[in-house]
Amino acid sequence: MNCHLYKKKYVKRISLSEISPLSNFESKSTSSLIYILFRAADNKLKIVFNKKIDQDISNEGFKEIGRKLGSRRDYDLMKLTLKELGHEYIISTQGYKYSILLIRHLNTIGFPTISAKKIFKKKITI
């Protein structure tokens, strides 16, 4: 009889210290806009919090495709959720690689995007 023993692989749990403190979430002064920017030249998606995006739009060629009012905690939770869903943050380009799946996941977790309307549009055939 062939018996194989397999090692169990445990996923590292997220500690509460990795997320912004709850007190920041409750404070009204930390609420700001979370912007989702897209650049078509290299298919890069950039998500920024509480930043003047005029410089990114004019100098770097980004286009705003979505925004949401939120706190720093919301921003950190969104980044952790995207990491758990398999979307890696690329440090060298400071953003995510654009994909339809990434846009769908952003829309599902509550960050509306302009291009999500095009993705979910259903074709009606007769």
Rank of each mutant, 00 (worst) to 15 (best):
H4S: 15
Y6K: 14
K8I: 13
K9I: 12
K9V: 12
Y10D: 11
I14H: 10
S15R: 10
I19Y: 00
N24V: 11
F25Y: 10
S32Y: 03
F38D: 00
F38Q: 03
A41K: 06
A41Q: 06
D42M: 10
K44E: 12
I47N: 00
K51R: 05
Q55G: 00
N59S: 07
E60K: 13
G61M: 02
F62D: 06
K63G: 01
K63Y: 03
E64Y: 00
I65F: 00
R67P: 02
D74P: 03
Y75C: 08
Y75G: 05
M78E: 05
M78Q: 03
G86F: 07
G86I: 05
H87K: 12
E88H: 13
Y89M: 05
I90G: 01
S92L: 15
S92I: 15
Q94K: 14
Q94W: 06
Y96N: 07
Y98L: 09
Y98W: 15
S99N: 09
L102W: 07
H105S: 11
L106W: 02
I109N: 03
P112R: 02
S115Y: 06
S115A: 04
A116F: 14
K118W: 09
K118C: 02
I119K: 06
I119Q: 01
K122E: 01
T125E: 12
T125S: 10
